[in-house]
Design a protein around this nucleic acid. Structure first.
Lengths: 233, 233
DNA sequence: ACCTGAACACCGTTCAAGT
DNA sequence: ACCTGAACACCGTTCAAGT
């Protein structure tokens, strides 16, 4: 009982909103959407639920804040390969979000929920801003900048959301090509009358590379923007 | 007690998976995501939870099936203005999904959740098929059909998801222009250094029309497809 | 001002028992 | 084969009480 002076490591270094958010993100990353509970959170933070409610209004706010934090971090990353063209910058922003959703798969569903709850809340302006600056640099006339930027943002959110799953479906046992194979086979067994197209592209889907496909979509939209708003060289 | 022959209207007409799905969709439409509980469902169907579990594996399957039903119905609608061009058909398909999400706002988040759980489950092939046929008709070379179709699908899911909120945020008291006004004002008060673009487009966002904006995005992607894969006239 | 922790209402799911 | 309904484990949230 003499060596009690040290106590057992650090315990409380005061509970802050930041520490709570940090723990929430860790919990979400480790255990998925269902893993974030107030019980798990109190255990990890060594407190009671009341303490958390002192810093955070409710679970919804907690999720929103966690989402915002992660998105902000993803957009803050300066692309290593400093793309010099606006197109390159847009690709970099898109890939940043793509990777963030890949690292934090819960982001996909959470972004959708949040955007559909408060469409222009905190997250949307962040993404809009990152892309919009480049759209402007592309020479898109002022009156069309919002439309072009929104289109890119919506594509990114839709595509990244679905692609996030690829990293998640593949549990410990399943590997990627095995999964794609199975899906491809399933598509080929669809009703020929109802699903001729899907059957026909089953092989393309099997061979596809998530990130390359994602960027090809970005490039398609960029090509559309350039076609509709040709740069006044 | 003599007039008991009639009984009190219909009571049980046997519980089927279809009746359960129907009730689930009604409940979701009426009370939102949080409103679908097994208690509410048993009350509406006048049974116990066990009866529902006999027809449905669990709540997740119930939600997936409800989503699939609604999406299938939305895609089955033949556009009244029978668009003759592939572009017109694609716009019609897109608008069908847009409207479905508008009518069933819970669809947005549910689609995202479902797609991020099983990316190529039941819903994705349906959408892929509807759009893909038209992409093919557009003359896109075979090797690029999957990419072009996916891009359209992802944009639609992303955009419709966010736009769904507009119909939902507006409760009884709030009207649309009031809401856009408030958002627009909020954007103009963002930090000028961090959000120059968002501040600049605040007025465009305020004046924008959801459906027109949505279709403008579709057209942008269609323009991109045409630019990258010019029709071999 | 910040934290504790028992208590409450509610949820998804199970399962022995009925028909 | 299909349904009943009590029971279980778990969840978000509250709040009187402490410091």
């Amino acid at each position: 009982m003499a060596s009690r002076t040290r106590k057992s490591e650090r315990r409380t270094e005061a509970l802050t909103r930041e520490r709570i958010l940090e723990a929430a993100v860790e919990l979400l990353d480790a255990t998925g959407e269902g893993g974030l509970t107030f019980r798990a959170l109190t255990e990890r933070l060594v407190t009671g639920p009341g303490a958390i409610y002192w810093h955070v209004a409710n679970k919804g706010e907690l999720l929103d804040a966690a989402t915002d934090t992660v998105v902000a971090a993803a957009l803050a990353i300066e692309p290593a390969e400093s793309a010099d063209s606006p197109q390159g910058e847009i690709r970099a922003v898109a890939l940043g979000l793509f990777d963030a959703i890949d690292e934090h798969p819960w982001l996909a569903a959470q972004l959708a929920t949040q955007l559909s709850r408060s469409p222009w809340g905190a997250v949307a302006p962040r993404i809009l801003e990152s892309i919009g600056r480049q759209v402007r640099a592309l020479g898109v006339p002022e009156g069309s900048q919002f439309t072009a930027t929104s289109a890119l943002m919506h594509y990114i959110l839709g595509a990244a959301g679905q692609n996030a799953a690829n990293g998640r479906v593949l549990g410990p046992g399943v590997d990627r090509s095995e999964f794609l194979d199975a899906t491809s086979r399933a598509w080929k067994e669809l009703d020929p009358d109802d699903f001729p197209f899907t059957r026909a592209v089953a092989d393309q889907m099997r061979a596809h590379d998530d990130q390359a496909e994602f960027l090809a979509g970005i490039d398609l939209i960029l090509a559309g923007i350039t076609a509709v708003h040709p740069p006044t060289t």
